[in-house]
Amino acid sequence: MIANLYQPINGEIVEIIDESPTIKSFVIVPQSAFSFATGQFVELTLPGEGEAPFTPSSSPTVTEKMEITIMKAGRVTERLHNCAKGQPIGIRGPYGNGYPIDEFVGKHVYIVGGGVGLAPIRSLFLTLVDRIGDFKSVVCRFGARTPADFIYKDALLGPWQKLDGVNIKLTVDQANGDWSGNVGVVTTILNPKDVDIANAVAVVCGPPIMMKFATVNLLEYGFDPKTVYLSMEKNMSCGVGKCGHCMLGKYYVCKDGPVFTYDQVCKYPKIWE
């Protein structure tokens, strides 16, 4: 009999980390080692409640556990937020293409992210710094609504800033407390002089409106549409190119994506909706 592609493997939530008022990271131990490439996603089932797609935010080099960072956004995510340690869960995947890291070799990697979009970006970041010598530099421009909304704050403000070959700038839409950094949407900290654009690729992940404006800026700066990598978020169900929910033009985002170059998707209308 052919393996059942709708059957998740069992796993358990072993730790829950509060990242922001609306975002938590869940450390999950699958019943057997689970490999994925950075940028690939999984379908996470809360038994009896529902299933939703998430991109692991941990490094793919760790296979005995993985971290998934989840924003409370609706029915299933809210129930996940109400779970406690020890909660059994189901995992299907990994699905999709992930980031084409080998195509980034020898280039500057210019990463623009916001909100819970930093989840896939953290996995990518950890993958890149593991072999930082392969890239000209890794430049990060991240935004959040308020300082409290930044996830992975400890790493972002501390050790990541000090890594060789890495340059990180942060911004918030609204400052409060002791925030002394930039205030403004993420596009206000983008600068065409940040990297040598002819030798760079850009990675964008975040809320649709942020992705839209960041992409417009990047193209204006001279990024080739073929070098702007976008994580497209679409409604998903099966994750395996059958149910049709995630279609973006001719693409199944679950199977052909979720990472696309702007060049691939720009001919379709309403890609940001």
């Binding site: 709708y6 038994p47 149910c243 049709g244 929910h245």
Partner: peptide, 23 residues
């Protein structure tokens, strides 16, 4: 052939169902 998957709780097990959907 569009469909969606949904989850239900039975008395002694959980089930994932597959049902037709419409674009």
């Amino acid at each position: 052939h569009c469909f969606y998957l949904y989850d239900t709780a039975q008395t002694d097990y959980f089930a994932k169902m597959k049902m037709w959907d419409s674009c």
